[in-house]
Design a protein around this nucleic acid. Structure first.
Lengths: 166, 166
DNA sequence: TTCTGAAATGTTATAATATAACAAAAGCAA
DNA sequence: TTGCTTTTGTTATATTATAACATTTCAGAA
């Protein structure tokens, strides 16, 4: 039985530096294991997604990339597709946006809690949700290849902000 | 405890006529209850979505609409937005497409099983999945407004087709 | 019944997201 | 080096969605 990971919405306590360094390290390793090249461009796009630390659109990444020099949409989409392919980022379909993956070492699809107020998000791989989906699929004879679970609402911090009284 | 609905992928046994008639009837009622106008345009768009009986893109709806006469994108998007608003259709975020809602009378968000081979789909409102998501949210102090659950894979029928031997 | 204001639809233009197609460059292996 | 594969650059365009404003329709008030 997989262990539950606790949610981690970004906030002011977050140690950005070490977080990104850690992600980079993992990414490096994943690419090596897979025999894939973690080129300067891919590394940079991965870094930009992580630096943003919220779901980021492809064209936002593009704008950031363009601060380094010329770049066009396919450049970004190709890098993102590569990162998606090997599980270093996830795509949030309901936002047309991308997020860094917190545990690229093991394959998973996960679930996402996304705060509509501060735009922070948290990635889970909740066994209960996974099991409920798997059970439902089995029950109905459906063979699952991939699932998308995106939960929109308010993170704990923003709930407090929205009702400061009472 | 909500009752489980059994999955209903479309197939050759499907009675299209009565299915659409029923959907129309429900839609009519829902609009009436809500004091909303089920105009000819909205009715037609709703019908086109149901006739297709698979997830259908806005521009596909547009093309169909144009067989009746001139129409432009905002016309379709406005009708779809209206139908979404009152729960007569759902949007499948991972496909940028729309489907008719099977139970518009009670509010729900549901889950979708989508066959990547034949493009049929089935809508559920599985209490176990709902509960797992709700429990996870509570556990982490997240306040849910809306959730998206889209499960891609193969329907029972298409699984059989893909491995005719053994 | 006509008038009026709100809701719905029409129309044109454009924004936002994503990919096709082909050319050039970079990296690797013989 | 040479030749091959992978990656990136570049231009053009496809696909999805909305903004802004004009016109029409319709229910209810006068």
């Amino acid at each position: 039985m997989a262990k539950k990971k606790s949610l981690h919405f970004i906030n002011e306590d977050h140690d950005h530096e070490s977080c990104i360094a850690e992600a980079m390290g993992k990414a490096e390793k994943v690419c090596q294991q897979r025999g894939q090249r973690f080129t300067a461009l891919r590394r940079r796009v991965f870094e930009l997604v992580w630096l943003h630390h919220r779901p980021i659109g492809a064209y936002e990444v593009l704008e950031l990339l363009q601060q380094d020099g010329r770049a066009a949409p396919p450049t970004v989409y190709r890098a993102l597709d590569f990162l998606l392919e090997i599980g270093l980022v996830h795509r949030i379909a309901s936002l047309n946006a991308y997020v860094g993956c917190v545990q690229p070492h093991h394959p998973h699809e996960g679930q996402f809690f996304i705060c509509e107020s501060c735009k922070s998000y948290a990635e889970l791989d909740d066994p209960d949700i996974n099991n409920a989906i798997a059970a439902s699929a089995i029950e109905h004879g459906f063979s699952v290849r991939q699932h998308t679970v995106e939960i929109m609402g308010l993170c704990p911090r923003c709930q407090k902000k929205e009702e400061p009284s009472s």
